[in-house]
Design a protein around this nucleic acid. Structure first.
Length: 272
DNA sequence: AGTACGTCCTGATCGC
DNA sequence: TGCGATCAGGACGTAC
């Protein structure tokens, strides 16, 4: 379940371990469906020779522009993870794809469920599609959030998961943000007051930044092989667990758009 | 246009 | 103890 903090953690890992500047020698794809563009044949033909200029992130996508002018785009899906090791080091379990560099190191794409995707494109938008504002950027303000939520009757939780509304949130951080904000996940989005929208925006930022700071510490503690485990979030994710926010409620579990959703009925009442 | 649901995947967990 | 069924969900495609 890599969401924005996990993908950003991966980006920082890749930068710190020195991916920018490496030149690709060989791409080995173990599951053809992972490559979305161009064809598998063209992907493995065109990627080698490129030198990585930098590693950027847009939502949950990692963007690695090459000196060829094309951009190598990676999405970790639900179970994806990336590691760079010397090619001679035994690979971790569940490595689906590898990319060898000319300096003797190798990127390992670990992905048990094969939901990850790769692209090689001229324009990153070919891979990412239309994306909403980055929640940790200046573009993400109360007015912008209010605008995209207006006239939407869908549950607020469902909209938080749409990448063209806000980039980078997934199931866990959507729940965590709503929990921090004290907003019921099934409230119709258009029914939120300006105060609630402001609280929600702040809560999204806090949830993400809290997690990012934990990942920064974890990378320092475990360098050069930080663990894949998820950073602990505030919201208890088990039914009937005591609410750590109000201390009196017990967590409820429901499905919102087929996604497991937790909330505290006391902190997050169904009506304002 | 907005909303809802099925599909892809397989390791982990559950129930009998 | 073993084995089949179920669950997990990011993004996209399809249907209404």
């Amino acid at each position: 379940m890599p969401e924005l903090p996990e993908v950003e953690n991966t980006r920082r890992y890749l930068v710190e371990i020195g991916l920018p500047g490496k030149t690709i020698a060989l791409a080995t794809i173990g599951w053809a469906n992972t490559v979305k563009h161009p064809s598998l044949e063209d992907f493995v033909l065109d990627l080698p020779g490129g030198t990585i200029q930098k590693v950027a992130r847009r939502g949950k996508y990692l963007l690695a522009p090459l000196d060829t002018g094309q951009t190598w785009v990676l999405h970790l899906g639900m179970t994806g993870g990336l590691r760079i090791h010397p090619r001679t080091q035994p690979p971790p379990a569940m490595v689906r794809h590898t990319v060898d560099f000319t300096d003797g190191t190798q990127l390992r794409f670990i992905d048990p469920r094969k939901f990850g995707h790769l692209w090689l494109v001229d324009d990153p938008a070919q891979a990412t599609g239309k994306m909403g504002p980055e929640p940790l950027s200046e573009d993400f303000n109360d007015a912008a959030l209010a605008l995209v939520l207006s006239n939407r009757t869908a549950p607020i939780k469902a909209l938080l998961l749409e990448q063209h509304i806000i980039a980078g949130l997934g199931n866990l951080y959507a729940d965590d943000a709503l929990y921090r904000a004290g907003i019921h996940p099934e409230r119709p989005a258009s029914g939120l007051s300006p105060e609630e929208i402001s609280r929600l925006r702040n809560s999204i930022v806090q949830a993400l930044e809290h997690s990012l700071s934990q990942y920064d510490q974890s990378r320092r503690d475990h360098w050069p092989d930080p663990p894949f485990g998820l950073s602990p979030w505030l919201i208890p994710r088990s039914p009937d667990a005591p609410c750590v926010r109000c201390g009196s409620g017990t967590m409820e579990q429901v499905k919102v758009r087929a996604r497991t959703t937790f909330y505290c009925p006391v902190c997050q009442p169904p009506t304002p």
